[in-house]
Amino acid sequence: MAETFLVVDDSKLARMVVRQALRDLHPDCAILEAATGPEADQVDGVDTLTAAFIDFNMPDEDGLKLAARLRARRPDLPIAIVSANAQTDVLERARDLGAAFLEKPVSRDALAGFVAAPAAQRRSA
């Protein structure tokens, strides 16, 4: 079965960058996109996701609120918070949710490392 990734970011350009990097790494993958947390809540296929990449700074709510909802629904889902906001509070909140943190601009190598890591490593990264 092909991988399915969720990319949530209010920046269309940021979504395009992540989408292209994921397609380079996994040409047959499916990519679901949303611009906001509430929009992501409406995406079909959450139960089959391989991983989720969520921007922290979004207009309706911060990405950690969406990550918490996803974690409640899928405790084993690898989640990465993607943000230029690498403040201690954000990093700690991500860690408390079992989410990794990838700093923007996110690199193809960072995405590759996160996707390739065993689930236990992704949650503690």
Results as ranks from 00 to 15, higher is better:
A2W: 04
S107A: 11
G37W: 01
P105I: 12
T36H: 07
F5K: 08
G98Q: 07
Q121S: 07
C29I: 09
L32V: 14
A120F: 05
M58A: 04
V7D: 05
D41P: 02
L111N: 06
P118T: 02
M1K: 02
R123F: 05
L22M: 12
M16T: 12
D96L: 12
F114Y: 09
D55G: 09
F53A: 03
A112W: 01
R15M: 03
F114D: 08
I54D: 01
R73D: 04
A2Q: 13
R71T: 15
D41L: 09
D96S: 14
S124I: 14
L64G: 05
V90E: 01
C29N: 12
R74Q: 15
D55K: 01
A94N: 07
F5C: 13
P78Q: 10
V8G: 01
C29A: 15
A112T: 00
L6M: 13
P118W: 04
D44K: 04
R95L: 11
S107E: 08
D10C: 02
D55I: 00
R123L: 13
C29S: 15
A120C: 04
G63H: 02
E33R: 06
Q87T: 06
P105M: 09
D89K: 11
R122Y: 02
F53H: 01
A110K: 00
P27N: 07
A117H: 08
Q20K: 15
A2P: 14
A119I: 14
A52C: 04
L91T: 07
A116S: 15
D89S: 15
L49F: 12
R69P: 02
D76L: 07
L66T: 05
R95M: 10
I54T: 05
G98R: 02
A21F: 15
R123W: 03
